[in-house]
């Protein structure tokens, strides 16, 4: 395991093992290890290697690293959707491992995920409207639902898209529907796993703007996973750099990108296309 290098101002929010838990943290991960068994050779390999991080209310945290560095495995473990691994994961202060099945299900709507492949995230046999309807039916006692037209309006879609099926939507439209589906649950944490890398370049900026705005209006925290440093820089306050499953550097986004301390981060920055920095958007 590589010792993570602390950079910048948000270091007070980083949880170290042994300290008392701070109130109000949305997500706390302590010493998480996730191992997979390879399909063919059946060997174990470590996808997430002793990772600790935490996200406070309203905070947005970027996770960068090349593909295969364990970003998605981390996100899936953090949202209890994938292999749990070992270590502690606390969502809204509750230890995921101690929860009963029903308690976990009740907690789930607080965390919503936006995936890379927008078409894969929608049931091909369900229109946009009936998809919304089903999500509402999952929590019958809740009354604070946003209505369909308002919901699509918030993600800048025309109301006539409501009766379309996923295959009738473009990638960008489908991803907006996915964001709307996440927003309607009024989550405390949005996990976005490469939300723009499946999209046309011209739509990417719009979807990012939407996510940024969503965070501003709902006050939700965000865990934003991407291999694209420019995108992370434009949307996240803090950033974690992962390499081969381990966190090699974390801290304030501007600081990390301006003065990288770890070799791997420098290499990632050097590999960015075009000019050295784009103006912060």
């Amino acid at each position: 395991m590589t010792e993570a290098i602390e950079t910048g101002t948000a270091a007070d929010l980083v949880r170290r093992p042994g300290l008392t838990p701070q109130d109000g943290l949305v997500l706390e991960i302590e010493d998480l290890v996730v191992q997979h068994r390879r399909e063919r050779s059946r060997e174990l390999f470590t996808a997430v290697d002793h990772v600790s991080l935490s996200i406070g209310p309203g905070e947005s945290m970027g996770v960068v690293g090349e593909s295969g560095s364990g970003k998605t495995t981390l996100a899936m473990a953090a949202t209890a959707l994938g292999a749990p691994g070992t270590g502690t994961i606390r969502l809204l202060g509750r230890d995921l491992r101690s929860l009963k099945r029903a308690e976990l299900r009740a907690l789930r709507p607080e965390v919503q995920v936006v995936f890379q492949d927008p078409h894969g995230s929608l049931d091909p046999r369900q229109s946009v409207r009936s998809g919304f309807k089903e999500l509402r039916a999952l929590q019958p006692r809740r009354t604070d639902w946003i209505d369909d037209e308002d919901l699509v309006g918030r993600v800048r879609l025309a109301p006539d898209l409501l009766d379309r099926y996923p295959h009738q939507l473009s990638g960008g439209q489908a991803q907006r529907v996915c964001i709307a589906r996440a927003l309607m649950m009024r989550p405390r944490l949005i996990v976005a796993d490469e939300p723009t890398s499946g999209l046309d370049v011209s739509v990417q900026a719009d979807v990012l703007e939407l996510l940024r705005e969503a965070r501003r209006t709902t006050g939700a925290s965000m865990l934003f996973i991407s291999h694209d440093l420019a995108v992370v820089r434009s949307i996240c306050q803090r950033v974690v750099v992962m390499y081969r499953g381990a966190v090699v550097e974390q801290g304030d986004a501007e600081q990390v990108f301006a003065r990288p301390r770890h070799d791997y981060t420098r290499r990632l920055l050097a590999a960015m296309p075009g000019s050295r920095w784009r103006a912060g958007r």
Binding site: R105, V113, Q116, G120, R125, L135
Partner: peptide
């Protein structure tokens, strides 16, 4: 393994519901 199944689980749908309705 499809993402819409993960998404429904994240929204709190129960496993029997996911199997029967999706």
């Amino acid at each position: 393994e499809r993402q819409f199944v993960l998404g429904l689980r994240a929204a709190g749908a129960s496993e029997p519901r996911i199997v029967l309705r999706h």
